[in-house]
Design a protein around this nucleic acid. Structure first.
Length: 239
DNA sequence: GCCAACGTTGGC
DNA sequence: GCCAACGTTGGC
């Protein structure tokens, strides 16, 4: 999800200074390369930004995560009720916010959250429309505030309220994103999938794209090569 | 609306 | 720590 929105699921969270999860489980935080699983979650962005704080800190526990500098974030552009609340948040909704900026709250999946924690100010992310008539990449946004605590985890009225998260050790984080531009044309999932299959067979940039290898992850990294390749599609005719 | 894929929970 | 049951994501 994206900004203010809620999306279905995912969760993201932030953390900051605190802890990271110490748990051992699998889920968690960590892993540098993340292996696998996916996440869900989407998010939403809500309005602005000023609020947050940043977190930072703690150590990052897992030392070496590969560093990515391009991202893809999913959100649902069509109305859907979750606990009676509409989680719709498409790119047009982001444009509408003050300064065209919102916080990507609601991510409730550790892997997705960890990727948000890796995001740096100034990096770019694709705004992906999910769970809708025409899934695909609609536009580009910029990370304008690095990860800080997602306040919605403490809000009982919020769809993504998390009773297990304590104020002194918040589980979930979010970032602020600002609309940058629409793609010159919408790049549908179906087209990306065809290319991915070709590249998988014969080699090519989209060979291992997370959108297909980790389909349920709502916040995912792209290599620079993947990002540039997708961007190049804007100038081509639809497949 | 279906359902495959996969993350999470919780008993043991 | 294993793993079955359950819940969620999200394409179709």
């Amino acid at each position: 999800m994206a900004p203010k929105m809620k999306t279905r699921g995912t969760t993201r969270t932030l953390k900051s200074s605190n802890d990271e999860e110490t748990k051992t489980n699998v889920h968690s935080e960590d892993s540098p390369l993340e292996v696998g699983k996916a996440v869900r979650g989407k998010r939403k962005a809500s309005g602005s930004g000023k609020t947050g704080k940043q977190e930072s800190s703690k150590a990052e526990k897992s030392p070496e995560r590969p560093q990515y500098c391009h991202w893809l974030m999913k959100s649902e552009p069509e109305s859907r009720l979750e606990n009676g609340i509409d989680v719709k948040f498409g790119i047009e909704d982001l444009k509408t916010l003050p300064n065209q900026t919102g916080c990507w709250d609601g991510v409730r999946n550790y892997q997705a959250r960890n990727f948000m924690r890796d995001m740096k100010e100034g990096q770019h992310a694709f705004f992906y429309h999910s769970n809708c008539k025409e899934p695909g990449i609609a536009g580009i946004m910029k990370i304008v505030k690095e990860s800080y605590v997602d306040h919605t985890q403490f809000d009982k009225k919020d769809v993504h309220y998390d009773a297990s998260s304590k104020a002194d050790n918040p589980k979930w984080s979010m970032v602020d994103v600002q609309f940058e531009r629409m793609l010159k044309r919408f790049i549908p999932l179906s087209e990306l999938k065809k290319i991915h299959l070709q590249h998988k067979a014969k080699g090519g940039s989209l060979n291992g794209m997370a959108l297909f290898t980790r389909a349920r992850l709502s916040v995912q990294p792209l290599t620079s090569e993947e990002f540039e390749f997708v961007l190049s599609l804007e100038d081509n005719d639809p497949l």
